[in-house]
């Protein structure tokens, strides 16, 4: 049906994602022209590797935002998961399956705590997650004294490196733990949100909670799932980050929330719930990475980076709001 394909392209052209894509292409072209280093395979792999942590968390947050909630405690959750998991691995020995199982378990449990406070006590999610961020983080610092862990199990420190291939003379690329986890998280979240009835229930609930309840959706269960999913993503992201940093530092993750929120919001997710896509989040993450990386490659002081990120968020959110308003007033009611 060529007609419907045109129609869906038309719809894509009006979407937030389309404009993001244009902005990203323009940015890439100009950064590529300004600095030959930018558009290289090396830089691409580096960016994917170093933004895997933010990206995985962004996917968890995307699901929470679509459900109509918000969670900012995930960096503390990740810090706890990371610390406990690698302490256990150091003490008792473990393998990949084990460490991921532990980190996921811890993340999921902490997420469930958030869900219980939010749903059972009906406290707004922003307040709950600000509180739990401080509680999780405070307890972690108290029990660890803020000490870093530098010695990690050998197999963990080595990481993984799959599908190695050579490029040019002496550079070789492969799929490392970060890229693998990032790719898997994107795939799984996409499947959850677009191919499972649970994902669609999450969208519906975020769009109209009362209506979801009336249709018999299990609102408590869905919220539980959503916040656990955020926690699980925090668990996975925490190992990805520890492997990359080759150390566990209880104090460095907290504070990175805003990067994650930035990526998701740039990607078009709405804090009002019900709106947001995996593609958008990917593009939002890409834009964030390109901006921050571009600033460094252009030799601008990296102190400017938050300024530009903030500016781009403002512009992109206003542009979307403006175009929606235009469309609403222009579409004369039938």
């Amino acid at each position: 049906m060529p007609k419907s394909r045109f129609a869906s392209f038309g719809r894509f052209r009006r979407s937030h994602e389309f404009w993001l894509l244009i902005v990203i292409l323009v940015l890439c072209a100009s950064l590529g022209a300004a600095n030959g280093q930018f558009l290289t395979m090396q830089n691409l792999f580096d960016l994917l590797t170093s933004y895997a942590f933010v990206g995985i968390l962004a996917l968890g947050l995307l699901v929470v935002l679509i459900a109509g909630g918000i969670d900012i405690s995930f960096t503390a959750t990740a810090s706890v998961a990371q610390y406990v998991t690698l302490t256990v691995a150091n003490a008792y020995g473990a393998n990949w399956v084990c460490v991921f199982a532990i980190a996921i378990g811890i993340g999921g449990t902490l997420g469930a705590l958030n869900a219980i406070f939010i749903q059972k006590l009906r406290i707004p999610s922003i307040i709950v997650s600000v509180a739990t961020l401080n509680i999780f983080y405070g307890l972690l610092i108290f029990f660890t004294g803020g000490k870093y862990i530098y010695s990690l199990p050998d197999w963990f420190a080595t990481g993984i490196f799959w599908f190695e291939f050579d490029w040019g003379k002496d550079t070789s690329y492969g799929v490392n733990l970060q890229i693998l986890a990032l790719g898997f998280s994107f795939l799984f979240t996409w499947l959850l949100l677009n191919r499972s009835n649970i994902g669609r229930q999450i969208y519906a609930m975020g769009g109209n909670t009362d209506a979801a309840q009336r249709l018999g959706f299990h609102v408590f269960g869905l919220n539980m799932l959503v916040y656990c999913y955020m926690g699980v993503m925090a668990g996975i992201a925490s190992l990805v980050q520890a492997q990359l940093a080759q150390s566990v530092a209880p104090t460095v993750l907290v504070g990175k929330e805003l990067d994650v929120v930035a990526a998701v919001v740039l990607g078009g997710a709405s804090l009002m719930g019900g709106v947001g896509t995996v593609l958008g989040t990917f593009l939002g993450l890409a834009l964030l990475a390109i901006l921050q990386n571009g600033i460094i490659l252009l030799g601008v002081s990296s102190y400017w980076s938050p300024f530009f990120v903030g500016l781009v968020i403002l512009i992109s959110v206003s542009a979307t709001a403006w175009s929606q308003r235009e469309r609403r007033t222009r579409s004369a009611r039938p």
Binding site: R195, S196, Y203, A204, D210, A211, F217
Partner: peptide
């Protein structure tokens, strides 16, 4: 009306499809 204004007409009409145990859409 209790509709889901963030979703399409198709999905609103066939929303009952999403009820029940976990399944693919």
């Amino acid at each position: 009306l209790s509709l889901f204004s963030n979703l399409t007409v198709v999905e609103n009409i066939a929303m009952a499809h999403h009820l029940g145990g976990v399944h693919t859409v």
